[in-house]
Write a protein that binds this DNA or RNA. Structure first.
Length: 128
DNA sequence: CTTGTGACCCTAA
DNA sequence: ATTAGGGCCACAA
């Protein structure tokens, strides 16, 4: 997406690196825009009525962590089904609880008895 | 360089 | 069921 490049000035430096478990290659991502793209692409594939935790998205993307995903969603999440990316405990994105709950009701996302959080056991998307 | 700040996560109590 | 504390990593000041 051209918009992301414009927003970030297309910087190409290494911006993130994870020290891998012993015996594995370290994962490095060169371009923040590429990372944001990867995150948003993943979010777009989440089926209606299902959700992914921030950490789940990070795992599927293959780099970064929950906070990095959260950052991308905060900055660029407006154009994708952002309400399908939530906390691991099932609570909607911080600061967007109300509108998120509305979406869940609309697309039939399984909620817990209290009606304030998603039932992760049923709603978590397996990626398939 | 250091510090503070997140649409986060995990464990223990 | 909740909370507290520590960990996490990128980013801006």
């Amino acid at each position: 997406m051209a918009g992301l490049s414009a927003l970030n000035g297309g910087c190409v430096r290494l911006w993130w690196r994870r020290l891998p478990p012993v015996g594995q290659n370290r994962r490095v991502r060169a371009d923040p825009d590429d990372y944001a793209e990867a995150v948003l692409d993943t979010v777009e594939r989440i089926p209606p009525g299902r959700v992914l935790a921030y950490g789940d998205v990070a795992e599927m993307v293959g780099s970064g962590g929950p906070r990095q995903v959260g950052r991308v969603m905060s900055l660029y999440g407006g154009g994708v089904p952002w309400w399908r990316v939530i906390r691991a405990d099932g609570s909607p994105p911080q600061g967007h609880e109300v509108s998120a709950l509305k979406e869940y009701r609309a697309e039939g996302t399984p909620l817990r008895p209290d009606g304030r959080r998603v039932d992760m056991r049923r709603a978590r998307w397996d990626g398939r």
